[in-house]
Amino acid sequence: MKCETCREALSARLDGETEPAPPEAVDRHVTGCPACRSWLARAERLHRTILLRPAPPVPDLTAVILERTPAPPRDGWPARIALAMVAIAQLALAFAQLLGVEDHAAGHSAESLVGHLSHESSAWNLAVGVGLGWAAVRTKAAAGQLPALTGFVALLLALSAGDLVAGQVTAGRVLTHGLVVAGLVLLFVVNRQHRLRNRPSPATTADTSDFAGTETDHETGETPERPRQHRGFRRPASRHAA
């Protein structure tokens, strides 16, 4: 019997497994081989050390993990559906302006309308409707539309109030701007819901010194060093040199 086969059988015997060779032949080889007897003695000492070594104490963090686990996020469908309805109404208003239906229904004469400005207004209403609809589908896009739409609504309300007081526009025409105002409010709601859904959990932002900073390594007895946090802007990795 070779020493490799004998030591493999002895290792299996220590682990309580089936030996790959007859036990009698293994014992005869160990009796006549000083190298295998020395190997067996070292293996037995190591085996006893592993079996008698106590396991390091591990705290039960189940309650802490469950407490810090955020609740399942809600999709905020009511606000998104309402924003989609406002987008559809805004698109209908834009198409009505482009086709001239609204102007004829209001009784305005063709001479009193500036064609190019009317087309610009219709194009803007169309763009607002498309943007609101896209924000209802992809809530992440709501944040990008808020600055422009907020400035537009603020200026529009101020100018519309002045025109209404001066009698240059009817109250019905001013009320049509309520769609874009409602769209702006719903944009704020959808954007807030999106930010709440994607907000990092408290476990990632809280101080982890209670666990990592106070415990010591059981092997070396040293306190592990906390990783340095990168502050500032970090450039994205290149596709070819990640």
Rank of each mutant, 00 (worst) to 15 (best):
N198T: 14
P227I: 02
Q193F: 03
A123Q: 10
R173D: 15
T205R: 13
E102G: 15
G151D: 10
E225H: 10
A212K: 11
V181H: 01
D217E: 01
A171L: 07
T214M: 10
D217Q: 02
L155V: 15
Q229V: 14
S160Y: 04
L187K: 01
H119A: 15
G221S: 02
T223Q: 11
G129C: 01
A123K: 09
G151L: 06
S122T: 04
A105R: 09
T208Y: 12
S109A: 07
F188A: 08
W134D: 14
L186G: 00
E219T: 14
G172M: 03
R195L: 13
R235L: 13
S121L: 10
Q229T: 15
A110G: 13
R195V: 06
F152L: 12
G232T: 03
T150G: 10
A136V: 01
K140S: 14
A106K: 04
P200D: 05
L117C: 04
E120Y: 12
S109K: 01
G107H: 00
A106W: 09
L187F: 02
F211N: 07
A106E: 11
V130P: 00
T216S: 12
H104F: 14
H194W: 05
H218Q: 11
A161Q: 11
D210T: 10
L156A: 10
G162R: 11
L155N: 14
G183Y: 00
E120C: 12
R195H: 08
H116R: 14
R231Y: 06
L126Q: 04
Q168G: 13
S118F: 02
A182M: 03
G178C: 03
N125D: 14
V190Y: 00
D207N: 07
S122W: 06
H108W: 13
E215H: 13
E120F: 09
G115Y: 07
A182V: 01
H177L: 06
N191A: 09
T220V: 01
L117W: 08
R138Q: 09
L159G: 05
G133H: 01
V130E: 05
Q168R: 15
E225N: 09
T205E: 10
P200V: 02
V180I: 10
S201L: 06
A158C: 04
A212P: 07
K140I: 13
V189R: 08
L196S: 11
W124Q: 15
G151M: 05
E120K: 11
Q229L: 15
G129N: 02
A212N: 12
E215A: 12
A158Q: 07
L132K: 00
A127W: 02
E225D: 10
A127M: 09
E215Y: 12
A206G: 11
F233A: 13
Q229P: 08
F152T: 07
A166S: 07
R197M: 06
V128L: 06
P202K: 03
G129V: 01
A135H: 02
Q193I: 03
S160V: 05
A206C: 06
A148C: 08
T216C: 10
A123W: 07
G133F: 00
